[in-house]
């Protein structure tokens, strides 16, 4: 299933080259494509070069596959369903999410709008396909720590990029929604701004989000949180990658309404969390994620007053 999902990212004529790579889809992290450069694949933090035959090599050789402009255009056309205009906003943000929740990062020449904000990207010449991994049970260690006498605590997951924040959040949502031995299932609402958490395609989540989960796909976080609060009567709202004044205000509004919040944030320490506008009193649990021996793990969890409950 996952193999086919990854293969479907590419147009039919290029799928043969990825046949071998997708067999290792469980270990596959990134596929990096740049015009006039050899195609690279990241398998369990190890870099390989993709050959024209589809095989992997540790060194660049004659058989390495150098991406041509037409190949890059063909991949982009397929990802955009031949309709770049329909992905104007996503391209402007620098990435497109494809079915399965995989994120395709793009770079090229930026087109600025009148307000000097990035409007679009033309001459897209580099692509980073980040493979999403749904790991059921990823939050097994954290789940008992975020309940206090059956009550769910507002929790912030903090980690540097690539340390499994979204994977952890996804599994937390599923377990909170379905219920676990620690608590009954709750009504969860997810604002999935980048379609990464649920991996929705045409409104249907590609990942298991639990039976009591409503997903608002592609909506900006601040607006989405308020919309869901008014319309879906959630007990818990989950969002990815918060930070900044507007996010803080929206979270505070939600907390005032008696709704719980589970969120993630880039960072690695409490100081970084504070510097990004998130007040210590807003969350009751801070879970820090990181890497140990190349694997994403839960490093520590502490309460808002600094009391460590997991290390």
């Amino acid at each position: 299933m996952k193999e086919q999902e990854v293969l479907n990212i590419f147009p039919q004529e290029l799928r043969k080259r990825f046949q071998y790579v997708v067999q290792k889809s469980d270990k596959l992290q990134e596929i990096r494509l740049c015009v006039n450069q050899p195609a690279r694949v990241l398998l369990e933090y190890e870099e390989f070069f993709l050959c024209r035959t589809g095989e992997l090599s540790k060194i660049i050789g004659n058989s390495s596959w150098y991406i041509s402009i037409s190949e890059m255009e063909a991949i982009l056309d397929h990802i955009c369903s031949y309709s770049r205009y329909a992905y104007e906003e996503e391209i402007g943000q620098g990435f497109i999410t494809v079915p399965g929740g995989h994120r395709v990062g793009l770079s090229g020449q930026v087109i600025l709008g009148e307000d000097a904000k990035v409007k679009n990207i033309k001459y897209i010449r580099c692509m980073n396909i980040r493979i999403a991994h749904e790991v059921k049970g990823a939050a097994d260690t954290l789940i008992p720590l975020i309940y206090e006498n059956g009550r769910l605590c507002n929790t912030l997951l903090v980690a540097p990029p690539g340390c499994g924040k979204t994977t952890m959040l996804r599994d937390l949502i599923r377990q909170i929604s379905d219920g676990s031995s620690w608590a009954e299932g709750r009504q969860v609402a997810v604002v999935d701004e980048r379609s990464e958490i649920a991996g929705s395609f045409m409104g249907i989540p590609g990942n298991d989000m639990g039976i009591r989960t409503d997903v608002l796909d592609g909506c900006p976080k601040v607006q989405g949180m308020m919309m869901l609060l008014r319309s879906m009567a959630p007990q818990v709202i989950a969002v990815d990658e918060v930070g900044g004044k507007e996010d803080r205000q929206a979270i505070q509004n939600i907390l005032r309404c008696g709704c719980n919040v589970i969120a993630t944030m880039h960072g690695s320490s409490m100081e970084e969390v504070k510097s990004r506008g998130i007040d210590e009193s807003m969350f009751e649990r801070f879970a820090f994620l990181g890497k140990r021996k190349g694997k994403c793990v839960l490093l520590k969890v502490h309460k808002s007053m600094g009391e460590k409950i997991y290390d």
Partner: peptide, 13 residues
Amino acid sequence: FPDSLGMPEKDGQ
């Protein structure tokens, strides 16, 4: 018809 596709924004397309 497919040749006309590929514009980066709605109005242009």
